[in-house]
Design a protein around this nucleic acid. Structure first.
Lengths: 108, 108
DNA sequence: ATCGTCTATCGCCGATAGACGATGAACGCT
DNA sequence: AGCGTTCATCGTCTATCGGCGATAGACGAT
């Protein structure tokens, strides 16, 4: 493969990957979406639009960001869309952060 | 089966607060800074500038963001500055994310 | 066939992030 | 006093974010 670019950062899980996942989580609306999503088990875009007070296009955009980050699964269902929290991915992010924090605090 | 009322009383921080902390962590450079900071116990701006390949002003800016987010402690020391990881704050963020993730995954 | 609903996407915008160089203050050293 | 070092801050530039309305495609219902 090309571009082994982050070789110089001492061989941990690379910062870029962790940062990207956290970036997807670093917006209050997206956290709210995750909460609503998990509370409803799964739901469509409109449902979230009703819950939050934002334009449909905005919500759709936030959902796309979550899907692209791999934190939410997407499945077209008729004319609706089913969005569902990817629990494994979420726990993975949490574990990554925990590992980072742990390695940063391991000397006290 | 039973409702996760424990979380409610344990009070995860509101979305805005969590998002703000995560935002501070959602940049590879800042994660790298945290790692270096913790590995060195504490260090000055210049040290980080040497480690990363960025302008001093850029590094200073990233440090300010981390300090403002409460994740790094700052103490002027002569003409230098001492930056130090705030372990408690870091663990707090990690715990907040864990709580959020947990509440999102509690039904599977 | 047409209408209404639900989505995703596009274009546009203001605001913010992230990078830089330049500058000046604080300090140690000679 | 003068020099070198360290650092925070300012101004600037560009790219991206986050919001919106408008639009078009897909679909169910009438």
């Amino acid at each position: 493969m090309n571009a082994p670019l982050i070789e110089k950062t001492c061989g941990f899980a690379d910062s870029q990957t962790v940062a990207a996942k956290l970036a997807a989580l670093s917006h209050p609306t997206r956290i709210e979406i995750l909460r609503h999503l998990s509370a409803s088990r799964s739901c469509c875009c409109r449902e979230i639009v009703d819950h939050l007070d934002l334009a449909q296009s905005t919500v759709s955009q936030h959902l796309k960001i979550l899907v692209d980050a791999g934190l939410v699964r997407y499945e077209p269902d008729r004319q609706r869309s089913r969005y569902e929290v990817d629990s494994d991915a979420l726990e993975d992010v949490s574990a990554s952060l925990a590992a980072l924090v742990n390695s940063c605090c391991s000397g006290r």
